[in-house]
């Protein structure tokens, strides 16, 4: 089945971030297709490479990046939600006059239209949130 995923909560703060990651792993293992993973609300915080969880804990962002690389996942962070929360890619950092970017490998920043398109294109949109 072709699935799209919406992640609405931030890592470590809320189980939804872990559940989304585990769901995507399980779906891929079962041979399902992931059309896109869209990060919204505090979910955009899953996409910063500047987070440093304790060493004996899981690193959710690194796991997403690895998964993106091994399965060519499309990980999209909402630009409006990202700007509010200080998640920037190189272009946005330049455009906004900020000194650096923090988007993690495998993630890209784009508009909310990508979420609607994900809903249109996939057979199921699965929402992970509060």
């Amino acid at each position: 089945m072709k699935l799209s995923i919406l992640v609405n909560e931030g890592p470590y703060q809320h189980q939804a971030a872990d559940s989304a990651l585990q769901f995507v792993k399980a779906a891929l293992e079962k041979g399902h297709e992931i059309f896109r993973v869209f990060f919204y609300h505090d979910g955009v915080n899953n996409g910063t490479r500047f987070a440093i969880p304790p060493q004996d804990d899981r690193n959710i962002t690194v796991e997403w990046s690895k998964l993106a690389e091994s399965h060519k996942l499309d990980l999209v962070v909402c630009i409006a939600a990202a700007q509010r929360r200080g998640i920037l890619d190189e272009n946005e950092a330049k455009r906004q006059g900020k000194s650096g970017d923090n988007i993690a490998p495998g993630f890209r920043i784009s508009g909310l239209g990508q979420l609607i398109e994900a809903g249109i294109q996939a057979e199921r949109l699965v929402v992970f949130g509060d």
């Binding site: 909310l112 239209g113 609607i116």
Partner: peptide, 28 residues
């Protein structure tokens, strides 16, 4: 598409950001 709004308008950002998605969806 059905947008289900379950949270108070203030206190959390869910309502405001939900409305942003709704407005974008109109273009599709």
């Amino acid at each position: 598409f059905m947008f289900v709004n379950r949270k108070a308008p203030y206190g959390t950002i869910y309502a405001l950001e939900s409305l942003e998605v709704v407005l974008i969806s109109a273009a599709f």
